[in-house]
Design a protein around this nucleic acid. Sequence first.
DNA 1: TTCTATATTGGGAGCGTTCCCAATATCTCA
DNA 2: TGAGATATTGGGAACGCTCCCAATATAGAA
Lengths: 339, 339
Amino acid sequence: MNNLTLEDIAEQCGVSRSTVSRVINNHPNVSKKARMLVQEVINQTGYQPHAAARALVSNRSWTVGLILPRSVNSFFTDPYYPSLIQGIAQACSSSDYTFTLFLMREKEDEERIFHRISRRGFLDGILLQSDNIGDSLIDKLILSDIPLTVLGRPFKSGNISFIDINNVESVEKAVDYFIETEHKRIGTITGPLNTTVGIDRKQGYMNSLLKHGFTVDKDLIAEGTFTEESGYLGMLEILKAKPDAVFTASDQMALGAMRAMSENGLRAPDDVAIIGFDDFPLQMPAYPPLSTIRQPIDEFGNEALRMLIDIIENGTEPARRVILKTELILRGTTRKRIN
Amino acid sequence: MNNLTLEDIAEQCGVSRSTVSRVINNHPNVSKKARMLVQEVINQTGYQPHAAARALVSNRSWTVGLILPRSVNSFFTDPYYPSLIQGIAQACSSSDYTFTLFLMREKEDEERIFHRISRRGFLDGILLQSDNIGDSLIDKLILSDIPLTVLGRPFKSGNISFIDINNVESVEKAVDYFIETEHKRIGTITGPLNTTVGIDRKQGYMNSLLKHGFTVDKDLIAEGTFTEESGYLGMLEILKAKPDAVFTASDQMALGAMRAMSENGLRAPDDVAIIGFDDFPLQMPAYPPLSTIRQPIDEFGNEALRMLIDIIENGTEPARRVILKTELILRGTTRKRIN
DNA sequence: TTCTATATTGGGAGCGTTCCCAATATCTCA
DNA sequence: TGAGATATTGGGAACGCTCCCAATATAGAA
């Protein structure tokens, strides 16, 4: 590796350290001639400023951390996390931020991770995935005054900047669609009800039902964990109550639900219509293409980072809030609307 | 955040900066009394050394980067990458290294990423996933002299440190098992044959066949891409040649293969026995539990990082090489061995 | 007790930047 | 052409740490 310093480049150019620094940082007050000369030498030598030196004096590390508090299992199974990571990694790359990842497996990791991320000069900001477990980290993080953006609505949203999608509303619309297409017994397999996503999506379901004068039937509601397996189990439960449409809070659960249906000789959408949630690339062997609510995951990563950078640059007050829109994608597991 | 410096702590303790530094870095020459006093004050104040300052003077960032050159798609679908990330993130966390992630989507990213990671004082070392695309990065990386460990055998393994699993040997054993259990027409769905994993696993398959005096029948070999879909398609091909056993180079492909079988009214292991590769937590709806070759992914992450740290600390020469063992797991998709 | 060996401590220098201000070069307009 | 304004440049100081060496305290031996 080349160990050139600013001063070396300066010498080669016959200018001062300061001028080279100005060229690198695109400061205005440099003569065209000098700028070109320096640029030339930099290109030739492949000089790169020393990250740590820069970080020390500028008090910016140009590094952000993503903390995922989820349990190990769903990290593998649920395409959500890979997608999220992908989206954020990419956003970081475009903004020339370094992306560091912290996986919290157990409760004990919390203390340890907190200790690490609160090292001064280490992270410029933090993206924290909202979660029933992780939320206890929020308080500490808030106190430590490090720029923070929470991904997904946190339980106590008091003065916290967060980004979310319109869970309630989008599910409400999906269930509205069931009702418009003449379904009478509409069930749902919810996400975990100790998470805000789980709660919000269930709320959307109830909103629609209530709005249309339906009664909420407990036998048509099962709590899942976003996994295929839990969708399967949930559907087995609900099937007893003879649903004609089911909204599942994730595509994975939709998959499981359809497996349960298939085992009982039922097909979507004729016997039971299905709408899922996510619309990530997913393998759906042997089933009709899934109607679902599309979650804009790339945009989510982008906006989350953008918010965080804004907080880094302009301070944590006032708390920011961004709600992204979803889209109902009608495919093969729902009835066509009668015009 | 607290903005204490070494000097502040020193003052509070009535000792010098140097003594505090020695306590923090566990240097020997500190009196018991002083050490305890300093430790006490550090604990009370929650002082943390400034990461950048430390990195600047010690020329160590305590950060390693993982570069994944894979195409986007398989990043979502294939549990391999999340598992790998998880394993390495954890290993980093235990060793107090920071884990940064670089996702290479397109060929153009290569130049950009290379530029970023070669910033001085930025990364102490790099873990690079071997890949037909990414391998062109290796040469640059080698030249740039940054500590590098390649994950999976690289094409040109000349003087490169890498870690791999015993692909050839383990597949050979799996196919041996097919032969021991009286199978006669053994097929395989390979990984992509422009990757070393793909090549090696196919080699293992051929080794076993040849060793036992079987002839290699092209009609019993299909090239896949590790995805469920490609397993499905591959199996459809192979089925024409009437196999009685198939080794698939990933569990996902095994899944697809079994879907193809199921559509043709065939069952494992009676009609066609199946052995997969990976044994990551996987959802296998409605099929018998999969016999497979277990890949020690956590150990892989650990060992990879351990190797990298060794290179960081003791220099890049000589090239290290570690081959991890796999394990054949016999479950429901293979015949029982007759004793 | 006194001298020497050893354990402990303190402070200067330096890591490679950025920021700031003073110094110098260049331009503008009367 | 010259004074003043403006554009450009250079170098000191600082960021917070580690390393090194010299200074001091302490212990051990005679």
